[in-house]
């Protein structure tokens, strides 16, 4: 797999078109790594000159900030900004809405100013610019529902990019009752991913998965590695894992193109 690092590129005196910020989940989580690879395949197919930071990348600080640890967040942010500015990065793409939000909204005030894209936005542009095309009809006519990640949707008002990609697959997009700005959280945000839920009557991911199941879609699409984990667990909890798949939009595109 062709994944150049910034260090290698700089050594060759090259500057990539865009930096791919992989994120912690995308780097370490077994499920999320598949999303990372699917996205890299798309980038390679479209001939995008990208690079990653590799071992120079570190947590954006999102979970620390939402947990209330502003110190740790700003330490992480300033360290990352030093690396990014050192490489004169202008444009960043990431498949994680949490990294996306933090890099885009919370880094500028600390000296990190970049154009930041969510991977669904970049893929949409690649398609519109004709650098990428979708031919395989693997999902044609299939029902797919889309779960809005909070940090992509409500947090940054991006609702259409992922949906337009599902439409490009010629799949039938079936909305859940709570969608777009009314979308229900998967339960992972605000550092909940890293702790047991507080005492309650139900798990949030189960509530959300049941809603997705009601659409009768066999595929739950999302655009966030944490939502992916939560929804996958929800599907398991409702004993539907043989029936229903949880896939990232990047995986849908890569699959339909047999990448």
């Amino acid at each position: 797999m062709n994944v150049p690092t910034m260090a290698e590129m700089t050594a060759q005196g090259k500057q990539p078109e865009i930096l791919f910020w992989v994120g912690c989940a995308g780097s370490f989580d077994d499920r999320a790594k598949k999303i990372t690879k699917a996205f890299v395949k798309i980038l390679n197919k479209a001939g995008v000159e990208f690079a990653v930071l590799g071992t120079e990348e570190s947590c954006t600080g999102d979970p620390a900030k939402r947990a209330g640890n502003e110190f740790l967040f700003q330490m992480q942010a300033m360290t990352n900004i030093e690396v990014l500015n050192g490489y004169e990065i202008k444009k960043i793409v990431t498949a994680c809405p949490h990294c996306f939000n933090t890099l885009k909204n919370e880094y500028p005030q600390l000296g990190g100013n970049y154009e930041v894209l969510h991977h669904t936005e970049l893929i949409e542009t690649l398609l519109n610019d004709g650098r990428l095309s979708i031919e395989g009809g693997k999902y044609k006519g299939q029902k797919i529902t889309f779960h809005d990640p909070c940090y992509l949707g409500r947090a940054n008002d991006i609702y259409e990019a992922p949906r337009s990609l599902i439409e490009k697959l010629e799949a039938e997009l079936v909305e859940m009752k709570r969608c777009k700005s009314d979308g229900l959280c998967c339960g992972a945000g605000g550092a909940q991913m890293f702790k047991e839920p507080e005492k309650g009557t139900k798990d949030i991911n189960v509530e959300r998965t049941e809603e997705a199941i009601k659409t009768k879609s066999k595929i739950i699409a999302t655009g966030c590695p944490f939502c992916n984990t939560m929804m996958t667990d929800g599907v398991k909890a409702t004993n539907k894992e043989d029936d229903i798949k949880v896939l990232d939009i990047a995986e849908l595109i890569a699959n339909t193109e047999d990448l």
Partner: peptide, 21 residues
């Protein structure tokens, strides 16, 4: 625990930053 990991390994889990790629 998560925050200690971020501080020491640059990730919310106990993985080594050198294994990031």
């Amino acid at each position: 625990l998560m925050m200690t990991n971020v501080e020491n390994n640059g990730a919310p889990w106990q993985y080594n930053q050198m294994d990031r790629l």
